[in-house]
Design a protein around this nucleic acid. Structure first.
Length: 431
RNA sequence: GGUGGGGUUCCCGAGUGGCCAAAGGGAUCAGACUGUAAAUCUGACGCGUAAGCUUCGAAGGUUCGAAUCCUUCCCCCACCA
């Protein structure tokens, strides 16, 4: 019989590989599991969302997730999927990053417990333990580590791992001894967490398979306990890019790094061909319900639902509601005769720029304004935009390249909305 | 270490003295059609309103004129050792 979690994960298309089938049986009881996060930045980005969904799904089925932020592994750099040697980060930065990630992970996983709760075991969770492998890795002496851990690894086997093999084959880059050792540390983490936190399962992206199995192998050699690994599929967008990457870089989960509005819009913009799949993977709506929704011919409704659910999960319901309202406003009729109050709260999470009142009183060239806000990267680009009919003030198309923007253009007491093309908006407020 | 090939604008890739801001494709952006989707079609795509300015691994040189020729240097690839 399939355990309910695996059954659910499977129906959602979240399972890529599992180390042994007995995992199923083990998961009949409540278990502790963990997933590692890389503290290379002070925020997670959309690429980590799948992992969070994984942890959240387990938790919603009564299991206990632990999040590992790799202070130690971060110091070394995971060679997986990287063609270049990683730039090493300093201790301080990693600690700060790890702290920030911990808060983020907890917030999101707690929020996940409150969404679509019907038919779930329990929504009351205790705090997710956030552990840092620097705590148990740092005390090791090099010699001790080699004796106690290194001894259990065959270099022959390590060289077979894809992450290592690909780097060995690239003659010009190669792999440093440091990065080569990465796997040992991740393997030891698993061992440590099994012994100390009772983690019997490690989950991760499909690229982590080699590192995860290194852990289960180590555990088999050193103990008589069982440990399992489970990986998620790698998600690609319809045009073959990594999910969650935008032209301007990663899609961050931190509201200061990526505005919630932008985050929401990213998901609204997903292809029809993928949206059902994404709903299953990235929301807690039941699979049956999603299949039901998919039958209806509802023009973009699925994308909006996906975006709403995700924004809710990552930024909270209030923010999600505002962002939806802001989107409705922006994608609707001309924007005019509104009050600052309405606009300010509505557009709080939309990208914005402040300009000086006197500047606007004197008038600012439209092209200048477009390039100043970063909506266009140069005056020339802004000119082209206007010439091609893609420039709007308050949703009214402007075709005059010499147009000067003045106080008359304000939609409310102190704000106006600039738009490039069909969906890029930028709020200008006067201070 | 030796020999041969090569480094071109975001990517791939043409161009071997003026017609080159540099073919073609991809990506991207805008417009039309739509549903803030896809496909398709149209246009744009170094900076600049323009005159013009700055680009073709780096630095020098030859020339009225160089991405194209010469010198040195840096990096890559292939084969040999």
């Amino acid at each position: 019989m399939k355990s309910t979690v695996l059954e659910d994960l499977d129906r959602r298309g979240l399972i890529f590989q599992i180390t042994h089938d007995e995992l199923d049986e083990t998961l009949q009881d409540s278990q502790t599991l963990y997933c590692g996060f890389d503290p290379t930045a002070d925020s997670l980005h959309a690429g980590s969302l799948l992992l969070l969904m994984g942890l959240a799904n387990f938790r919603r089925h009564g299991h206990k997730p632990v999040a590992l932020v790799g202070g130690a592994t971060g110091l070394i750099g995971d060679p997986t999927g990287k063609s270049d040697e990683r730039v090493l980060l300093t201790d301080d930065i990693l600690t700060q990053n790890a702290d920030a990630l911990g808060i983020q992970i907890r917030t999101i996983l707690d929020r996940a417990m409150g969404m679509h709760t019907q038919s779930l075991v329990s929504t009351k969770g205790t705090d997710i333990p956030i552990v840092n492998n620097a705590d148990w890795m740092k005390p090791w002496s090099f010699i001790d580590f080699l004796r106690d851990v290194g001894k259990h690894f065959r270099v022959n086997a390590m060289m077979q791992k894809d992450s290592v093999k690909s780097r060995l084959n690239e003659r010009e880059q190669g792999i440093s001894y440091t990065e080569f050792s990465y796997m040992l540390i991740q393997a030891y983490d698993f061992y440590h967490l099994l012994e100390n936190e009772g983690c019997v399962l490690q989950i991760g992206g499909s690229d982590q398979w080699g590192n995860i199995t290194a852990g289960t192998d180590l555990i088999r050699r050193r103990t008589s306990k069982s440990a399992y690994g489970l990986t998620f599929p790698l998600l690609m967008t319809a045009d073959g890019k990594k999910m969650g990457k935008t032209e301007s870089g990663a899609l961050w989960l931190d509201a200061n790094k990526t505005k919630p509005y932008v985050f929401y819009q990213y998901w609204v913009g997903r292809d029809d061909s993928q949206v059902v799949d994404l709903l299953k993977k990235f929301t807690f709506i039941s699979v049956d319900e999603i299949d039901e929704m998919a039958k209806a011919d509802n023009r973009g409704e699925l994308q909006r639902r996906l975006a709403y659910e995700l924004t809710w999960l990552v930024h909270g319901k209030d923010v999600a509601d505002t962002v939806v309202a802001a989107s409705k406003m922006l994608f609707g009729a001309p924007i005019e005769n509104l009050s600052d109050e309405d606009l300010a709260s509505l557009f709080a999470d939309v990208p914005s720029t402040q300009i000086k009142r006197e500047d606007l009183e004197n008038g600012i060239g439209l092209l200048q304004l477009f390039s100043d806000t970063g909506l266009q990267k140069s005056n020339g680009a802004a000119r082209r935009l206007v010439e091609q009919g893609g420039a709007y003030i308050n949703n009214n198309r402007i075709s005059d390249t010499d147009r000067v923007v003045t106080m008359d253009d304000l939609a409310s007491e102190s704000m106006l909305v600039l738009r490039a093309g069909k969906k890029k908006y930028h709020l200008i407020s006067v201070s």
